[in-house]
Amino acid sequence: MDFGPHLMLALIEGAVLSAVLALTAAGLSLVFGVMRVVNVAHGEFYMLGAVAAWFVAAAVGGAGPAAFLAALALAPLAVCALAAAADLAVLRRIAHDPERTIVATIGLLYILQQATLMGFGPDARPVAPPFNARIAIPWPVWEEGGLALTWPWGLSVTTYKLFVIAAAAAVLAGLWLMLTRTRAGLVMRATQWDRETATAFGIPVERVYALTFGLGAGLAALAGVLVVPIQQAHYLMGGDALLLSFIVVIIGGLGSLPGTLVAALLIGMSEGIVSVFFSPTLAKILATLLVALVLVFRPQGLFGAAGR
């Protein structure tokens, strides 16, 4: 394949990764934005979404799209409920103290990951995509007599990957509408601005926190479900998801949803492109160093406004 089609392919892979990453990171960003805590177990909720999808799909069975659609509906809900329960059982009791929350969610990370190892095993397992037609992509070439379309071998995208991009965009748009246009969103933003005043106005802050934590985990789980048909479910898949979400959320500016989205596109695209042409390890090193330096020198993120 020539350079052009190769790059096109990398861009498509990058867009899929961006979509999954944007969902996952939006969950982490939401939790940080509203509750001012960092959920280190976030990657495990992504992993649980993928694993739960496998269990649901296996229980429903069959080759048709029913198994996947059932997983898409049920797995995020189950993970959401689990996370909300964890918030009530653990984080609420330490009053969401930022540093202790990090230690507690590190503990949660190991509990979820190791429990999955016990119940699901060490193997990677796939879920069949509901549809997976291959669409060839034409590539324009200048020839004698003008522009002609060619069909380079290997330059194609599956309908499922397009679906992942569309689904992520739809969910993020829905999240944005919920946060800005609904009463629930208003309550969450009020809690974010000032916990004491929110309490004084009769907002049940503890419940808002539990629901926010659940919603954040649910978004990660949804990303996990979407990724299973492409990547398979594995009990260690949360580590990379956590790292990439961290990178996205910090570069985008902690707690800023639009910033998160821009950063997800940037990281997802560059990861897709960079890993096609360079060593993925080097790319990760540069990304982690970038995160550290952003936090040191520009804590509001690359795209955030200057802090108050």
């Binding site: 960092v38 540093e99 961290f246 990760k284 090193i285 982690t288 160093l289 330096l293 936090l295 040191v296």
Partner: peptide, 25 residues
């Protein structure tokens, strides 16, 4: 010299990232 420009949660994440870069290195 770098990480001590931050505090609290940011310090935790900065040290985590430097360690990650070291591991990958």
């Amino acid at each position: 010299l770098l990480a001590l420009r931050t505090a609290g949660v940011a310090f935790m994440i900065v040290t985590l990232m430097f360690a990650q870069a070291t591991h990958l290195g």
